[in-house]
Simulated scan of single mutants.
Amino acid sequence: MKGKLKTMAVLGMAAIMAIGGTVTVKAEKTGMKVALSNSFSGNAWRAQTIKIFEKYCSDLKDEGVISEFYASSAGDDAQNQINELRNMISQGYDIILVNAADSNALKPVLEEAADEGITVVSYDNRVEGDNLYTIGIDEEKYATQQAEWMCETLGGKGNIYLIRGLEGSYNDNIRYECWTKVLENYPDIHVIAEGYGGWDAGTTSQLMNDLLAANPDTEVNGIIQQGHGEVAMTEALVQHGIDPGTVAMTGEYTNGFFRVIKEYNINAFIEGLPCYLPAAALDVALAVVNGEDAEKDTIIDPPVIDAADADEWYHPELPDTFMNGWTDDDNTWNLTLEDVIPDDMKAE
C-alpha cells in the first residue's frame, strides 16, 4: 500500500506493545471525551492529521471507548490557543491532545489541565512538563540527517540555501540548531542566505524567488529545507534558469516532491513527520487513562524514503500538497487513503 511508513520507537511506552513506533491499546475505561487543539493549519499535513484523528475517534466512539470528540485549529496565535484550551478544560474533556503554537506559552495552561485530572499529550510541537506526555519524531536526528546528507552529497564544498520552518516554533528552533552544528564541521559549505518558509508552499515560493533574485551571480548547489516547499523551490529554480537536477535538496514526502524528483531527476533526501501522530498520541493518552506504565516522552525515528522509490510513492491523481506516509507499516489504525484525503482535495 502506498503511504505506509516503517518507523521505530527509540524511546517509548513501557509494558504495552509497540507497533511501528506507536502503541496498541486495549481500552478499559469507556465514554471519554477527547479534544484536539491544533495551532497552525496552513498545510496538508495539518489537515491530514486532523482527518486521521477524526477517523480514529469515530472508530473508538463506535466501540464505546469515547462518547464524543472535537478538533479545532487556533492558528499561530498562542493566546488564541490558550483560550481554546481553557474552553476545553471548562467543558470537561478527559483527554486533550495538542500541537502547540508556542510550547513555552502553552505550558502553564496545559499543566493546569493536568492538575485538574485531564490527560494531556502534546505531539509534533511538544510541551514538556511534570504531568504532561509527549510524542513526536526525533527532531535532532531529523535535522542532523538532512544537513549531514547535504554536506556529504556535495563532498563538503558548495553553496547552499537554508529554508527554515515556522518562526518561533519548537521544531524549527531545534532543527536550525542542529543544521548549524553540522555545518560548523564543513567550513567549505557556504550558506548563501536563509529565511523562513513557514512549512508553506506559498511562503516558500516567495522566499525562494527573493533569495535567488538577490543572489543572481552565485551558483547554488543545494537547498536544505524542512518541508512543504519542495515544489515551490523547484519552480523557483526553473524560473531563474537553474536546472533543478543540478541542485541537491532535502524535503518531506509531499506528493509533489515525488513528482518533481521524477521529472527533473533531482538528487533528494526525503524524510518527514508521520501524519498519524495524533492517533499515536491518543493511544498514549488511553494507556495513561487505563493505568498503564506509560513513558512520559515517546520519540519516533524520522521515517526516510529513498528518492529512487519516488515512482512507487507518487499519487498522480492527488495534488502536489498531499502528504504521503499517512500510516505505519502495520496500518495500526485501519486507515484507507479515502480516510486521509482532506475534503478540499477531494473536490479537485
Rank of each mutant, 00 (worst) to 15 (best):
residue 116 E to A: 14
residue 162 L to S: 06
residue 148 E to S: 07
residue 136 G to W: 03
residue 186 Y to P: 10
residue 156 G to I: 01
residue 185 N to M: 08
residue 116 E to Y: 06
residue 134 T to Y: 03
residue 131 N to T: 12
residue 128 E to K: 12
residue 121 V to D: 03
residue 116 E to W: 02
residue 119 T to E: 08
residue 160 I to Y: 03
residue 112 E to S: 11
residue 114 A to F: 01
residue 105 A to N: 04
residue 165 G to K: 04
residue 99 N to K: 10
residue 117 G to V: 10
residue 104 N to G: 10
residue 92 G to H: 11
residue 147 A to Y: 02
residue 174 I to S: 06
residue 168 G to W: 07
residue 98 V to S: 14
residue 125 N to E: 13
residue 185 N to C: 02
residue 136 G to Y: 05
residue 105 A to C: 05
residue 181 K to L: 05
residue 118 I to N: 03
residue 120 V to W: 01
residue 118 I to K: 01
residue 105 A to Y: 01
residue 167 E to V: 12
residue 128 E to L: 13
residue 108 P to Q: 11
residue 152 E to A: 13
residue 138 D to H: 08
residue 180 T to Y: 09
residue 170 Y to D: 02
residue 123 Y to K: 00
residue 126 R to Q: 14
residue 117 G to M: 06
residue 172 D to S: 12
residue 124 D to K: 02
residue 154 L to F: 05
residue 171 N to L: 12
residue 130 D to C: 00
residue 152 E to M: 04
residue 135 I to N: 07
residue 142 Y to F: 15
residue 157 K to C: 11
residue 179 W to F: 15
residue 102 D to Q: 11
residue 126 R to W: 02
residue 99 N to M: 12
residue 134 T to E: 03
residue 182 V to E: 07
residue 143 A to V: 07
residue 104 N to V: 13
residue 105 A to Q: 08
residue 131 N to I: 02
residue 133 Y to D: 09
residue 142 Y to D: 06
residue 182 V to Q: 06
residue 166 L to I: 15
residue 125 N to Q: 14
residue 99 N to T: 12
residue 140 E to V: 11
residue 167 E to Q: 11
residue 107 K to E: 11
residue 177 E to H: 10
residue 174 I to H: 05
residue 121 V to E: 04
residue 124 D to W: 06
residue 133 Y to H: 11
residue 120 V to N: 03
residue 110 L to N: 06
residue 180 T to V: 12
residue 181 K to V: 00
residue 109 V to Q: 08
